[in-house]
Simulated assay, not measured.
Amino acid sequence: MDRSRPTDGPDDRGQVGIGTLIVFIAMVLVAAIAAGVLINTAGFLQSSAEATGQQSSDSTTSRIQVVSMTGDHFTGDNEVGVVNVTVKKGPGASNVDLHKTTIQWIGPSGSYYQLASGGAQGSPDGRFHISAVQDDDGSQPVLNDLEDRFTLSLDLGTSSEVNGAQPFGEPLPEGETATLRVSSPAGGMTVEEIVVPKTLSGESAVTV
């Protein structure tokens, strides 16, 4: 047997063990940091997804439902001067503040934006008036019950026909159409088409 071959001593084995331990600790630290980053990222993504989901749900469910639409205040040229839109909150919707609701009117004379009279600040093309048809708990202008019915009056033309409303655009002639886009504060949108009958003669008000 060749006894002249050197062998590892206790000190050499100790150095190898310490080096392995240092590498192991470094790997554990790196894994812990990576896990922390992944947990934080997952939490952020979850919060973002929940917020996005809630916004999507609000914009879908917090809608205003149109019950009926009528036209009256006919001009001398047989045109509709005022459109009254009676609304309620949609099934499953949360409370809807009509003072924060926006209406876009798209008609023969152009596109106009309206805000509620006494509602949100801004420079709209006109302002609609809110009146209660049914409001047992006096919540106007907030639709907080499925039984609530409020009428939104849009004053067309230049002369003021509705107290509290600000006129805009032009009256709707016989046979003409217009589109209403009613947007709730949460972003839910209701689109309705207004169709004026081909003759208004002999009528004081018509369904549009």
Rank of each mutant, 00 (worst) to 15 (best):
K88Y: 02
G164A: 09
S153N: 05
S131P: 05
V191A: 05
T61H: 08
S59C: 03
E161P: 00
G157A: 11
D145R: 11
V87R: 03
S160Y: 00
S59W: 09
A132T: 07
A120I: 11
P91W: 06
L143W: 03
P91T: 05
S117H: 05
P167I: 08
Q121S: 15
V83H: 01
V191E: 12
P185E: 12
L98P: 09
V85S: 02
S94A: 06
I194G: 03
G122Q: 06
G71L: 07
N78M: 13
L156D: 06
P141Q: 05
L154N: 01
A165Y: 04
E79Q: 15
V83W: 01
S184F: 07
D125I: 03
D145G: 08
E203D: 11
D148E: 04
Q104C: 00
P185K: 12
G81F: 03
V67H: 12
G157C: 13
T158A: 12
P141F: 03
T158F: 08
Q114P: 03
Q104L: 08
K198G: 13
D148C: 01
P171H: 11
G157H: 06
Q134E: 11
H129E: 13
S201V: 13
G175A: 07
H73I: 05
V182C: 11
S59R: 14
R149W: 01
D58N: 10
Q121C: 04
N95Y: 03
N84T: 15
S184I: 09
K89F: 04
Y112M: 00
V142R: 06
G110W: 12
N84E: 02
V162Q: 07
L200C: 10
L152D: 04
R127T: 08
V96W: 02
Q121I: 07
S204Q: 14
G107I: 07
S57T: 11
M189K: 11
G157K: 10
D135H: 11
V66I: 13
G81V: 05
V85N: 04
A116F: 01
S183M: 12
I64E: 01
T199K: 14
S57A: 13
I194A: 08
T199R: 14
S68N: 15
V162C: 06
K100V: 03
E170C: 02
K100R: 14
S204T: 15
G119H: 02
D155Q: 06
A120S: 11
V182I: 15
A165E: 04
K100G: 02
P197H: 12
D58Q: 13
S159H: 06
